[in-house]
Design a binder for these strands. Structure first.
Lengths: 244, 244
DNA sequence: AGGTTTGATTATTTCGAAAATCCGCAGTAA
DNA sequence: TTACTGCGGATTTTCGAAATAATCAAACCT
């Protein structure tokens, strides 16, 4: 579940929000699950109103959906959504990379290397199953964020972050079935190198491939868990690649 | 069919949310204003919890900001935010246009023309001050949406819609000072023509210019209302144009 | 006087009960 | 059988009071 740290200055609602988000992303709360208030009240030890506030915010983040006057649901997963999400992520991430390379300074470069190192060290320490660790996921997120943190666009970064978290839920779904993932650490190092070398085009292409290959991996190993309903699973855009 | 299957079942919170959003976008609630619960409770005739839920959702939409345990604020406006918003909108809108042109069918084309006609007729009826009308703003929004509705990406459309609404607030700020706007109706017609002719590159460039010129107009006539604080107003990205 | 603590006041956040709504099911009629 | 209607229990949504935190100013110490 989630850690119940209560650092002073954090509202109760904010704390519940963070814990629920974490539980949804980690699939402790499974996609499509009906979220009953009585259950949640017991699980998170808060009252109706506080829950409702947290749920409302999660709706806006796309991790929960509101069903009219019939309560809330953990946002379902689907092949269509995963493909769409991936395409949008690629568009956003390419732009972030470009801007960061244009605007980044020395401190930005140092930050990237520091974050890579942290992630890399933990990876070695944990061995083959690093990808199951919440801590590694956190460092992995921090590394990818550090690559684009200097892009200078708060709006782009906020959109990116929300998409990243939703994608993380899909990654998580496949990791439980795939004891040995492909060697992403090599990819991460290559991306870092090209970004710091200010080689925009190559860095963009590497990140693009990094994202798409992960998606393909998820589809290969976890798509049997996806919802069948809604817009057809087999639908695929003609040209899913971002314009440029 | 799948038109609007939302007959009567609207929650109170949803209603308040819509009204507050409208009031913020129309600047009836001015940017930077402290939102006191007692005031809002009286204004919208609902209780604490319901207000809190609406406010939480607006925070996620970027129209309201939460200040720790010190309540809520109407999101401030700034030159920096306007420029950033504009750049992100251009990136998203170009992609939407491209995808819509790739995927759109006959019904999509007909929809665009119907929406243009509605907007155009109201414009004629209202005369020179059409841009002050909420109804025109609504039809204008519907027209722009219809241009990209066929893009096939729910995620992209949702992001686009939120950005559009935030930008509308800025447009609104300048319209009160500018009795005679430039002839946007001509631009709209040109955009529609190029989109329906499936001339992707030209359509993208026209929409790009449409957005950026509006922003420049706002800056020219309303930037004196913007907040001074935060990141410097004069900051401008080196190359604000989307990559491609 | 300058700066800090204390205490009263105001505003926000949380709670749990009360009202409104939905869902399933039985009963009735066509 | 099929469709419609009305009840009973379960669930969600709303409310306003109570708890908690921030603000401000007067009193206090140095």
């Amino acid at each position: 579940m989630s850690t119940t740290l209560k650092p002073a200055g954090e509202t109760r609602a904010g704390d519940v929000l963070a814990r629920m988000r974490s539980d949804i992303i980690s699939c402790a709360l499974k996609p499509g699950t009906k979220l009953r208030f009585e259950t949640l009240k017991e699980l998170y030890e808060v009252s109706f109103s506080t829950l409702r506030e947290a749920l409302s915010r999660l709706v806006a983040e796309g991790l929960v959906v509101a069903e009219g006057q019939r309560g809330f649901l953990v946002a379902p997963v689907s092949l269509f959504d995963l493909n769409d999400l991936t395409d949008v992520r690629v568009l956003i991430e390419r732009q972030c990379i470009k801007l960061a390379i244009d605007c980044g300074d020395d401190r930005w470069e140092a930050d990237i290397m520091a974050n890579f190192h942290r992630m890399d060290r933990l990876q070695s320490r944990l061995g083959a199953s690093y990808y199951l660790s919440d801590e590694w996921a956190s460092l992995h997120g921090a590394f990818h964020l550090s690559l684009v943190a200097a892009c200078g666009s708060p709006n782009l970064l906020e959109i990116r972050q929300k998409l990243f978290e939703r994608a993380h839920r899909y990654r998580r779904m496949s990791s439980q079935f795939r004891p040995q993932w492909r060697a992403k650490d090599v990819e991460h190092k290559m991306i870092m190198d090209r970004v710091i070398a200010r080689d925009t085009a190559t860095a963009q292409d590497l990140v693009d491939r990094h994202i798409r290959e992960t998606t393909e991996n998820v589809i290969a190993h976890a798509s049997h868990l996806f919802a069948q309903g809604g817009m057809g699973d087999s639908f695929r855009r003609k040209d899913p690649v971002a314009a440029e």
